[in-house]
Amino acid sequence: MAENPYIAFKKVSISFDGEVVLRDFSFEAPAGKHTVLKGESGSGKSTILKLLLGFLKPDQGSVMFKKRDVHPQRIRQRTAWLPQDLNLGDGLVHEVMQQPFSFKINSSLDKVDFSGTLEALGVPKANLNKPFRDLSTGQRQRVGLAICHLLDKPLLLLDEPTSALDQVTKQKVADVLLEGKRTIISTSHDPFWVELADKVIQLD
C-alpha cells in the first residue's frame, strides 16, 4: 500500500440496471507512479476511470483524490484521459488536436508541438491535415495519446492505450508517455503494457 495515496477507492460499489459492476472495490494509486488495472473485458476497468473523472457516482463507498472526495470539475482540471473508442468528430486532425488547447484552463500552454509528438508516436505529420475520421483506429488512439501527453497534466488516465497498436508502436508510446514523474492510471490486459507498471491491480 502506498503511504500517501494520490488516488484511493474505498469500498466502492456501482451497478447499472441491476447488474453489479463493482462491489466493495478498494485500491490505492501512489503519486508519480504508473498503476495498471488489469482485467478482462467487462471487469469494470473503464467504469473505474469514469468514477475517478466524476462522470459516474458510486452507489456506495468513496473515491478520493489527495485524501479528499473527488470533486468532478476540480479533478478534471488535473487530468488527461484517453477513452477506449476515441471519436473526435468531423474536423481535420490538427483542428481536433487544437480544441482541448482552446479551453481556458489549458490556455497557458502555448506552442505545443503536435507534429513532433505525433511523429514520436509513429504517426506521420502529414496526417495533421487529414480528416480525423479517416485515420485508422491505431492512429486515432495515438492522436488521443498525443493530446494527453501535450496537455501536461499531473494525472493521466489511459483506457487500453495499446489495444490497437503493434509491438514497435507500443514501445514508442511507452517511451513518450511513461517519461517524467506524472501519475498514470491505465487499464490493460496487454502483457507488454502491464510489465511496464509500477503497480498492478488485478480485477476479477
Binding site: 478534471r76 473526435l88 479551453f103 496537455l151
Partner: peptide, 22 residues
C-alpha cells in the same frame, strides 16, 4: 450519441460550456 467526445473534452479540463460548444 457522441457522449465520449463530450466527456473527453471535460476530462481535458473544459468547463461544461466549453465542452458543449461544438
Amino acid at each position: 450519441e457522441h457522449q465520449e467526445r463530450y466527456q473527453f473534452h471535460l476530462a481535458c479540463g473544459a468547463t461544461r460550456t466549453e465542452a458543449l460548444q461544438p
